[in-house]
Amino acid sequence: MKTTIAHLKRGEKGIIKDISIDNVPVKLFEMGCLPGNEVELLQVAPFRDPLYLNINGSFFSIRRETALLIEIEKLNETRAL
C-alpha cells in the first residue's frame, strides 16, 4: 500500500513523492504541493477529514479524498535541537 498524506499522523512530516496528476487540481500544484516539497500534518478534523496541512510554508486544509492522491515518504525524525 502506498503511503499518502492521509496516512500521516498529527505532527508528522513527509516528503511528497508522486501526485496523481489527473485527479489533483492544478490549484494544489500552485499552492506548492509538488514532488520534493515537505508536508506536515498539523491537525485533523473528526473522522480524519478534512486535513490541515503545512506544505512548503503554505497553510491550508484539503479533504481526505484529495490527500489520498498525494504519495509521500514519511520523515521519521525526532527533531532535536
Partner: peptide, 9 residues
C-alpha cells in the same frame, strides 16, 4: 468540478 481547499490564514 467541486474541489475543496481552504487556506488557513
Amino acid at each position: 468540478k467541486s474541489f475543496f481547499m481552504v487556506e488557513m490564514p
